[in-house]
Amino acid sequence: MGRVWLRTFCHPTPTTVSHAFVIGSTVGGLSERIGTFLINDDTTTFTDLRQKIEVFNDNGMNRRTAMYQDLLHLMATGSNPHEYEGKKIMKYRFGVIEGIGGQELGDTNFTRDYDKSLVPRLIDSEVESEPIKEVVGNLLELDILLVPVSQIRPQDGSVTAQIWQDTFETEEEKMKRTVDHINEIDLTKYSPEKIQAANNPSREEEENAMELAESGEFK
């Protein structure tokens, strides 16, 4: 058996768009540990973990867990720099930050002392059906982070609050890019010898054509 610890990650909400009364509850960044689950090291997948996070069985009826209720609130009210809308905002991805996890001993406080320039490395959605330990490695050294998709820039999938900016090229830059492209073209394939060889059939090709004509198969 193994254990996973869970945290959430959100970009800080700018004070310019936050009411002073709620700034303290929407500071963003890395949260304290919000829960833990015992798992089977060999078989428990991220898909299984989603099930544990979101649903519990109450006398034969599936209900949302308190953890998932809090996560839904975070996704609905947290920072949304990329302006996700509707149901798209109510989704989350798994991630890790190297060095965040393991035994919290003494005065260690990851949420206070960790490097704030670090952002989660997202777990590829395609491997969520694989055992967590095979994807993450040593679960005693890394906590699993729940990252709302609103924290992810849709154009390139990076965890950033920076808005995507389409690159603008000056005429000089466009010309340079065109010239660089031309310089990369292999002009040797357009040599007179290769062009002549391509246009003139070889002796073998002429003989094959004559044989087909004599046999009546070439028309």
Rank of each mutant, 00 (worst) to 15 (best):
I34A: 01
K189V: 10
P148S: 02
E207M: 08
V136R: 01
A20S: 12
R3G: 08
H73W: 10
F21N: 12
T170S: 11
R121V: 12
V119G: 03
M1V: 10
P192K: 01
V127A: 05
I23W: 11
Q155E: 10
F46E: 00
P131W: 05
V27A: 14
P120R: 02
S25N: 12
T160S: 09
L122T: 06
F94L: 06
A66P: 04
P192D: 00
T167W: 12
S18V: 08
K91R: 15
R112H: 11
F168I: 13
K174H: 09
I39S: 01
V127T: 07
G86W: 02
P131R: 03
D42W: 07
L140E: 10
L6E: 01
K174R: 13
L140Y: 09
N208T: 05
R112N: 11
Y114K: 05
L74K: 08
M61N: 10
E206L: 15
L212V: 00
S129L: 09
I152L: 02
E54R: 07
E173R: 03
N200E: 14
K174W: 09
L122K: 05
G29S: 03
N138S: 06
Q196I: 11
P148K: 00
D166M: 15
I182K: 06
G137Q: 04
E85Q: 13
R121D: 13
D42Y: 08
G95S: 07
H19I: 14
P120C: 05
A197S: 13
D107S: 14
F46S: 00
K174V: 12
L212A: 04
Q69S: 15
Y190G: 04
T47G: 14
M67N: 03
N109R: 12
F56R: 14
T167I: 13
D113P: 05
Y92G: 02
F9C: 07
T111E: 13
K52L: 12
P131V: 05
L72M: 10
E205L: 02
V27K: 15
I182N: 05
V27E: 15
H19T: 15
S31M: 03
P148L: 02
K219I: 10
I97G: 02
P81Y: 02
S31V: 02
G102Y: 01
T15N: 15
G2K: 09
N138K: 04
